[in-house]
Amino acid sequence: MINCTCVVQEGQSPDLHQDVLKGTLGEFSERAFGQGADIKWVRVPPGSGFTAGEPSTSSVVSMVSNEPLEAPHRELLLRELVDLWVGQTGCSVDEIVAVLADPAQA
């Protein structure tokens, strides 16, 4: 299984779309890595998330690949991941941070 951690602001759009997003991330993982995703959903309590020192609306989705990725392939996957997230939640690209790590250094 591919490890995936989603850090979302509790009660905001990504959190409210949790079930749909988990399904979408699982399908993405199958397509990208040939394996399903083990998804850890982490809610940031209200008043506990900040960007630039101010209340944040940002989410972080982080996945660990099952093999090292070349930069162009990694970028394609990251863009697909962000597009899926934005499409499902309606958030802007400025509100999602996506990380795709290699296995050895994860």
Partner: peptide, 11 residues
């Protein structure tokens, strides 16, 4: 730049 910096708190 500050806009890159995210901080989250848990108990």
């Amino acid at each position: 730049p500050a806009i890159f910096v995210h901080a989250v708190f848990f108990e």
